[in-house]
Simulated scan of single mutants.
Amino acid sequence: MLIPFDRPLVPGILLRRYKRFLADVQLHDGQELTVHCPNTGSMKNCAEAGSRVWVDLNPRPGRKLPGTWELVETTPGGLACIHSARANAVVATGLAQGRITPLAAFTEIRREVCVEVGGSRFDFLLAGADGDCVVEVKSVTLALGGGIGAFPDAVSLRGQKHLRELTALARAGRRSCLLFCVMHGGITRVRPADEIDPVYGMLLREASAAGVSVLAWGVEPTPQGLVLAGQLPVELDQPAGGS
């Protein structure tokens, strides 16, 4: 299932990413532009100067920047989609079409829903004949080599808060799910990035033990669009030296 981009992407080379939301790129024709970087994370291994990138050029009246950075060719190898909001769009399509099989029984999909525990806004609330399920989506782009992907790519207090609230929901008897949307073609399995955010790793294992469903779904980024692939394993084994 291909989810196409709105316009054909234009290839180029990344010169630098800075101020979180800005990136300078040199297009294939030699033109240098500053474009929007739609990712607030550290983008570890995804923002190396000299990397091949693809941007969506869409200059229009009133827009400050002429385009948006969408894809990057990374080392370790593989294309990554760095536009983090696209993870939710891909998941929404997969849910609507029943392609995310562990959640396929839910027939009603609501987006951006607050629940009573903690006050966070979660990405999806699914409902069906057997009740509902709160779903939080996390976009994974950090490839470590050997097919291993990790989350988060920087200490994530927001991610920790989501895990605590999902755990509280599960302990209260409500179904909850953390879904890693893997936006990198070189990743075949996912684990918590304990070396970056050990608290997140601890909380993720606690959430799983409490009954939170922890899933990972692969996406194959291409310059034509994003292809929702299949389920990937999540490895929650305690790291060496962990307690």
Rank of each mutant, 00 (worst) to 15 (best):
A49M: 08
L33T: 01
P11S: 14
A23I: 01
R63K: 12
K64T: 11
R189Y: 12
P61E: 15
E165N: 09
A172R: 13
V199Q: 14
D237P: 04
G62N: 03
L14C: 02
C37Q: 05
G201K: 01
L15R: 15
G50S: 13
N58V: 00
V91I: 13
D123K: 03
V55A: 03
L79W: 01
V115I: 12
M183S: 02
R189F: 11
A209R: 15
L2T: 11
V190E: 03
V55S: 02
S243K: 11
R16M: 04
A216K: 10
A89F: 02
V190L: 05
P59C: 01
H184W: 09
I109E: 02
A210T: 02
H83Y: 14
A240G: 13
V227A: 11
V135F: 01
V25D: 01
E116G: 05
V219I: 15
T74W: 02
I3E: 07
L215Y: 10
A216I: 03
T93R: 11
G30T: 14
E116T: 04
Y18N: 03
P102F: 02
L33R: 03
L236P: 02
G67F: 01
S42E: 10
I82Y: 06
G62V: 12
G50A: 10
A154W: 10
A104L: 11
P59Y: 01
Q160S: 11
E73F: 07
F151W: 15
A127F: 13
R20H: 14
P38R: 11
T34K: 05
W217A: 01
R20Q: 13
T68G: 06
T40Y: 08
T68D: 05
V35M: 00
T188L: 01
P102D: 08
